[in-house]
Design a protein around this nucleic acid. Structure first.
Ligand SMILES: NC(=O)c1ccc[n+]([C@@H]2O[C@H](COP(=O)([O-])OP(=O)(O)OC[C@H]3O[C@@H](n4cnc5c(N)ncnc54)[C@H](O)[C@@H]3O)[C@@H](O)[C@H]2O)c1
Ligand SMILES: NC(=O)c1ccc[n+]([C@@H]2O[C@H](COP(=O)([O-])OP(=O)(O)OC[C@H]3O[C@@H](n4cnc5c(N)ncnc54)[C@H](O)[C@@H]3O)[C@@H](O)[C@H]2O)c1
Lengths: 220, 220
DNA sequence: ATAATATCAGTAAAATTATATCGATAAATA
DNA sequence: TATTTATCGATATAATTTTACTGATATTAT
């Protein structure tokens, strides 16, 4: 009876940071690391780090902590970075090109095998070693190549129709960079990568600190 | 005694989605909207939407809900999108170029006035109407132009030194696209825009659904 | 004019997430 | 070898965030 423990989203979001830090430490020759040390580097609580690591199933030892190598492997395994998924990217614009060119995603088990666009000037070209194909053939190619992940970097108004085509083609997960909500059947996972959301947090926090620094601390 | 209520981060992250949805509704001629309706469009709980809106200070009326126009304005005001902040972007690479070219950030009160790079081939050029200046002059320009927001799109190994230069130049908020943790004084706001984090959530959830769909629901 | 209804605002409860505490244990030190 | 120390793993507590409930009120329908 196979079973999987669902990992809290806040935990998942922290794990890549651990991987990045640990990889740097590994290159420096560090062999083992404690949750205390990770917590200090990343400005987190050490108990939180230990609980996050617990999600991967790896166990540490008192006094020394965790073996860097094993921890990296366990984290990558937990995040599913060790199996590579092929993916299509739709919308070969400026954001799309940046994503196509980023080698870091390969490390995360994401292999973008083709891009799609409806602009005739782009179809047939190659961007960052990835061929740009005709958008009208998207569904067909998805099905034929058994693609499970679609990356949406088209303008907002066409995001929904793009998602629909991907889903018809059998895609199970969508990484949506457009600011629009997209409706999908419940078996499709959608993750919104919204830069605007991140910017909102930055600007709001900036204002909050500006106001609290000058006036007396916030009231209830 | 001026005071400001701190808005929970999860709320801040949802607000831009409301703005986007409401703007579409406004263009369709919709005059008023209820939290129920917003919740349905965005697949959220209506009470949650009402509480989020409460953070902006706006009040609705029973049966009808909120005036779309007023709600948009209140949300934008709360997010500080109505005051435009000038910003510098450091690292005019492919991600940097995508950000420079995105008009949507203007709507969020972010005006990128210059980019900086250390590549002589890029210094002096103009990317998407934004001039690329010499990285060694960053601190000086920050100070002279009273820049408060810095956007880091340089490779990870130089992210910290870039942040240091920005802070020396008087920057109060840093939007960091590199995967590295950066150390800053406590008065500097740092927001990590990590695409890898988002991808991690996508890939993990895809695996979780794959495993739970095929096997019996997860155990404790 | 009266009744029915959808929605708001406020409060209470539940769920989730983060932090604190404590005994056990491996390593370092005396 | 005994003692100190850092850290783990587990459990308990606290904080945050979400969801549920309740009475009041504006609109619509009868
Ligand atoms: N660039 C950024 O920094 C940034 C930031 C936040 C959000 N976004 C979002 O990302 C998306 C893309 O942004 P961008 O700056 O790369 O825009 P862009 O205009 O540079 O790229 C969009 C691409 O999609 C293609 N396209 C348009 N309609 C299409 C269709 N029906 N089928 C297939 N391809 C189609 C266009 O030809 C173009 O190549 C937008 O939704 C935008 O809101 C971008
Ligand atoms: N492209 C993506 O999709 C993507 C995704 C996730 C994270 N990131 C992160 O964003 C950052 C930039 O990525 P990219 O793909 O645009 O890389 P890139 O190589 O295209 O751009 C980096 C730019 O920074 C400049 N630079 C290098 N060192 C510098 C220095 N000391 N001072 C000033 N400028 C300097 C380079 O000349 C180049 O123009 C990286 O940290 C990367 O990890 C990118």
């Amino acid at each position: 009876m196979a079973s999987i423990k669902i990992t809290p989203e806040p935990t998942i979001r922290r794990l890549p940071k651990y991987v990045h830090l640990l990889t740097i430490l590994k290159h420096k020759g560090v062999k083992s690391v404690s949750s205390t040390m990770i917590a200090e580097s990343l400005e987190l609580d050490s108990t939180l780090v230990r609980k996050d690591i617990e999600a991967t199933g790896i166990v540490g030892r008192p006094k020394t902590g965790f073996l860097v190598d094993k921890l990296i492997m366990a984290l990558r395994e937990h995040l599913n970075w060790n199996n590579e998924d092929d993916a299509f990217l739709i919308g070969a614009g400026s954001l799309g090109a940046a994503i196509l060119g980023y080698k870091g995603f390969r490390e995360c088990g994401l292999n973008i095998v083709a891009a799609f666009d409806n602009n005739p000037a782009k179809i047939g070209t190659v961007i960052k070693n990835v061929p740009v194909l005709d958008y009208t053939k998207l569904e067909e190619h998805c099905r034929r190549m058994h693609i499970h992940i679609g990356i949406i970097t088209v303008p907002a108004p066409v995001a929904q129709q793009t998602a629909d085509a991907l889903i018809r083609g059998g895609v199970r997960a969508i990484w949506n960079f457009s600011p629009t909500q997209i409706a999908t059947p419940q078996w499709v996972v959608v993750e919104y990568a919204q830069l605007t959301m991140s910017l909102a947090v930055l600007k709001r926090k900036l204002r909050e600190t500006e106001l609290t620094d000058n006036s007396i601390q916030e009231t209830k």
